[in-house]
Amino acid sequence: MKVAIFDYGAGNIFSLKVALEKRGATVDVIKSFDQADNYSGLLLPGVGNFDPAVQSMRKSSKTTFQEYVQDKIPVLGICLGMEMFFEKSEEGKEQGLSVMEGEVVILPNKFKIPHMGWNNLKIRKSNPLMDGIPDSSWVYFVHSYRVKPKNDDIIVADSDYGIAVPAIVNRGTLYGTQFHPEKSGKIGSLMIQNFLRECKK
């Protein structure tokens, strides 16, 4: 199975590529949605800044993200990749991809920022991404912003950082994780496997 990682040109996507390959996927790194056929899944990696990342996606392709995905291709947005699903972010001025309703806000400054390290998941509802993953599993976070969905129904799991941080969101074929599954040991690897299984469908 072939999946694509969208490269905004901002950073390390090597770990994510290796993590997908370890779970049996063939991975291409793409910089445009034009002529990007035949991929069973798309990954939006978690490194970079909001505005340059959104801009790189708009400038490089005639095909928009929505046209490309068409509610059919499973997408996993990681950290910044998940934040881009929403309408706007306090990190920048650009409009987000707006495929999920809500906004991205900075973490309250009474806490250490970034929220960096291992925290556990409180699972709110069952989800294909969570198959075989027990409640309270540890995952690795590193972020300064959190998402505020308009409708809490899309939150699959959250994490406690003094406030509840939405950790996993899902709407249709779109999945987002605020943490980094590619850096979250065995649990993260299992989530990647679950995502790839959705891509196969």
């Binding site: 950073g11 390390n12 490194v47 910044l80 300064s144």
Partner: peptide, 8 residues
């Protein structure tokens, strides 16, 4: 920070 983000 501008290129890769603070976390790096």
């Amino acid at each position: 920070m501008n290129l890769f983000g603070k976390q790096c």
